[in-house]
Design a protein around this nucleic acid. Structure first.
Lengths: 188, 188
DNA sequence: TCCCCATAGTGAGGCCACTCACTATACTTG
DNA sequence: CAAGTATAGTGAGTGGCCTCACTATGGGGA
């Protein structure tokens, strides 16, 4: 009780996670799907990518659910957090977009909602009249501060059972993928 | 040439990937952002999750770009692929939704577009009059078959430089996260 | 049989993400 | 200084994803 008990579309089982002979997790349904989805190509690659996709989605969903409980969304939360950690409490939309790896157009939409809710304010930049600064408001700061304790608890729960080395490994492997995908827009 | 040269919003540098003392990749901009985003909580956790988020987004973008070149999107491509590997060439919308970890409502939208483009057809299920089967059409099959060769090449490029063990590790770590996120909807 | 509830799909409405096209301002160069 | 290009943000439109609410069908019991 206390919690609003937001329901959403339920956990969606999918969780037939089991351990294979070597002690590593795999998902029976996923492996079946992978095999169906084209014997061509490496099964390991496909399976790793599917697992990464699933993990990313679950993390996103969890973040969304968490933020929703405080009247935000994951994107809006990230924007507020960034602004909050600036000494000046402000940042131009373009910088926010770049930092969050979205297009400037998308940031316009996100800030639209934040501004409608009174959590940030658009302020013209006198130094560059093309630029628009997003400034976090008092209400925005309060909102963020209220969430802070919850957030660290959630974060710890996610990493439960991970060794420090595993976290480094995970980061390393993900960034290896990022590097492989950087700039090879045209294939061979 | 030959390629339509779809532009999109450009690679978005972000790629200050460097190697730290232990031989593992990290992203300078990301680490800075992480430190700003709250000293509380484990930096390793936050950084690993940020890397995973980034990798997932880049993979999604690459898939989208690839699919777009063939007049599809990632989601529609995945639906067609699944249908294509069924002996009966069909599947109810609910099963498709579950297999792709989206809500039934979302699958309705995706199939709407596929049907509008003539790649699938909705067919009532005589055995269960509530159910609607999505059946892949001739045009849909042709589309998928035309993409197949390209797809395996792309897939190989993504996994370039990965050992088989690293792929297994990546899968394992991602599924570990998935397991941690499964069903702990209420925190403590 | 009638009622209750679960299940399959969809209408309505919202956010987020992208594209392309456009305005306004800044910079750079002839 | 004028012209050309680059940069910052937005309008218009689409797709994907979600929630909530609703219809229609299916499958138990009292």
């Amino acid at each position: 009780m206390g919690k609003p008990d937001i329901r959403f579309h339920a956990p969606l089982t999918h969780g037939d996670l089991t351990v294979d002979g070597s002690g590593y997790l795999y998902d029976a349904a996923m492996r079946r799907a992978v095999v169906e989805n084209g014997g061509e190509g490496s099964v390991e690659v496909f399976e790793a990518l599917a697992a990464l996709r699933l993990a990313a989605k679950r993390i996103h969903d969890a973040m969304e659910r968490f933020a929703e409980g405080h009247g935000l969304s994951e994107s809006r939360l990230r924007v507020l957090t960034r602004l909050c950690h600036r000494p000046s409490r402000q940042l131009p939309l373009g910088a926010l977009a770049e930092g969050m790896d979205v297009t400037p157009r998308t940031m316009t939409d996100i800030v639209d909602v934040l501004e409608r809710d009174g959590l940030v304010k658009r302020v013209p930049d006198p130094a560059d009249r093309r630029s628009v600064q997003a400034v976090i408001t008092e209400a925005g700061l309060e909102r963020i501060n209220a969430m802070r304790r919850d957030a660290t608890a959630k974060q710890a729960a996610v990493a439960q059972g991970f060794t420090a080395d595993q976290l480094v490994q995970l980061r390393h492997l993900c960034l290896l993928l990022v590097r492989n995908l950087s700039g090879d827009a045209e294939g061979s």
